[in-house]
Design a protein around this nucleic acid. Structure first.
Lengths: 240, 240
DNA sequence: CAGCGCGGGATTTGATCATATCCTCTGGGC
DNA sequence: GCCCAGAGGATATGATCAAATCCCGCGCTG
């Protein structure tokens, strides 16, 4: 039971509200009225991204149907989507599992990240608004706080939020979408990293990055980003 | 045929061989016994990749159900998968369409391709086997032939096969998967390109690439690849 | 006589379909 | 010009079938 409750969400224990299943739409709000497959997708995505799935772990459709209380079709679609993004793997015989990464895979992910994320930092540097920088500083504070408290999950969430905010500021949806896909791939490995090293000596080039953003130093931002991701991937590699 | 067996089955049971077709696994052959959603996916993927969809064109589930003779669930899953890969776009209000790319999107795709494909060429150069090179020369011959005949579809197919073969030789499945996703995104635009310019002056750095592969010149291969993709993206950009 | 490989059945799980319900868009009436 | 009704299409459900895995008992061998 790695994650009994997903996110302090309204999905309580039983949730046997059968009659209300589809009588909802995004008209009211945006958190509650999403299609079922979207809700399932986001739940599973968060689990992958924040290391709540073990690498190599098997994932069954019907298990998720029972656990999430959703129908079979939405679960199937969410899984298909995650498989297309590389977050999950089709294990041959109609079996789905969380990918188990080796050194070769980590190295490829590193190459891709090194190619894309510094470029995003460069672009963000030119376009970012002061309130975005402020938000990133706030997120970075929460991140440091999570590290101090030794709270792995919060650290991973804040770290992702930090980078996502930066990538959004670059206004390059295709590139940041690609990067999001990369994060999904090494997400499960973060669990292992934090299990091995804890949150003590986690890399943090975020301060340099924020400084570069404030001064509009695009190359400095790119350099800080590259340093950050290389340290992260290095830790994953060592945790193998 | 299952729950709705109200009248004891329509004597022939609409699709008894539908179940038979499932009897084959991927162990025996590749093309025959695949699941329906996989067949639908490949069909649609080929259409996207080879410019048989018009950019901006709307895609309806029921239209594909009627056209392909498949059930609704397989079609939905295939579409969801293609949407996750960026080959199709969710148009907000339950509508799916082929993405319409602008200059900004093309530019991002160019950045990603320039980062990844020369690297794949470099790796392929170190590992490629002589029979792979021979196959690529054969494909390139068919490609030239298609150009001579002015046959756009064949040109696109052979061109894709050429690059796919090279990427496979790099033995970097994650990177080549990413590149495949990029190709899927600009595929529909190729239709416009070929409509505008025909097959006359299509770029072809393939000869240089093969030469570099034969001599083991990794940097030369990377350079040729970069030239090839930049010419291609330039043409798409000009066709806007 | 005990340990081990193997085949057959039972259970789990994935794939597909038909249907019901609801949302969105469009056209006509006031 | 706005509101309402109808049509078309998408989402979701549950049932059902097929296949793969698992488990257990049987026979064989040392």
């Amino acid at each position: 039971m790695q994650a009994a409750d997903t996110q302090g969400g309204p999905a309580g224990a039983a949730a046997p509200d059968d009659g209300r299943s589809e009588g909802e739409k995004q008209g009211a709000g945006q958190g509650a009225g999403l299609p079922a497959h979207e809700v399932v997708y986001r739940t599973l995505r968060a689990r992958v991204l924040y290391g709540q799935f073990e690498p190599g772990q098997a994932v069954t459709i019907q298990g998720l149907v029972a656990e999430l209380g959703a129908g079979m079709t939405p679960v199937r679609e969410a899984l298909r989507r995650l498989m297309a993004e590389g977050a999950l793997e089709f294990q041959g015989n109609r079996r789905i599992s969380v990918p188990l990464l080796g050194a070769a895979e980590i190295e490829q992910l590193l190459v891709a990240r090194r190619a894309l994320e510094p470029e995003l930092a460069r672009r963000a540097c030119a376009r970012i608004a002061p309130e975005d920088i402020a938000a990133m500083e706030r997120i970075d504070g929460a991140l440091d706080d999570a590290i101090r408290r030794g709270h792995v999950h919060d650290y991973l969430v804040e770290n992702h939020k930090f980078h996502a905010r930066l990538n959004a500021a670059a206004e390059a949806p295709i590139l940041s979408g690609l990067v999001e896909g990369l994060w999904l791939r090494f997400g499960p490995s973060l669990r292992v990293v934090c299990g091995a090293f804890g949150t003590r000596n986690l890399p943090d080039m975020h301060k340099d990055l924020i400084t570069a953003l404030k001064t509009g130093d695009a190359e400095g931002a790119a350099r800080a980003m590259q340093g950050d991701l290389e340290q992260g991937m290095e830790m994953i590699l060592r945790a193998l």
